[in-house]
Amino acid sequence: MDELQFDRAEFGTAGRICTGCQQPIAGDYYDINGTPFCAACTSAIRQAHGGTPGGADFARALGAGVGAGAVGSALYYVIERISGYRLSILAIAVGFLVGRAVRWGAGGRGGLLYQVLAVVLTYVAIAFSWLPIVLEKSDGSFGVGDLVPLSAFLLALPIRIGLESPFALVVIGIGLWEAWKFTAPVSLAIRGPITTMPPAAP
């Protein structure tokens, strides 16, 4: 390590490497959130994150989120059946799954709309995880007319259980936070083009 000097940054003979395409950057470069990018990659990033998301993006995010929520709900039941434990902590996994799925569906974009969508879907998934238990404990006489009161009952369950067990409430809160966090808007600080001067002669 003795050969290292700490007066000036050295970027080797190839110069700066683009964080996106991993190729040496010839000439000017762009700084995105503190890392160097070439002009082509910067343009692609601007295009991917710019503009308003369309209806198709939202529909895909909704579909992916509902699917992930259904998997999350089923996970509670499967794990309870296998292990005998109803693990409150699974709320975090549900938030993680739904948040990731919504983000994927939205093409990597985040934003308030997707954050609200992810949080709502996570909550619904956690609430409906009790559905198999409710059905098992009922006499099996549910009809179409019972769907609305049953849904209302299930949606109120996390709050009711949370009021009795602060543990469950905290963990559900963390699950919702996971969903919110994963769909947060990406903040891009783009500087450039930056012209690099050759280092001054010693």
């Binding site: 390590m1 700490f6 940054a9 050295e10 503190g34 500087r191 930056i194």
Partner: peptide, 28 residues
């Protein structure tokens, strides 16, 4: 330069040169 920059874009001087030298001395 940006307040959070680690090196100068114009001359490539390392902003935290003194601290880096001290850390290198500590590591040695």
């Amino acid at each position: 330069i940006e307040p959070t920059a680690l090196s100068c874009d114009a001359c490539q001087a390392l902003v935290h040169a003194d601290r880096l030298k001290a850390l290198a001395a500590t590591a040695r």
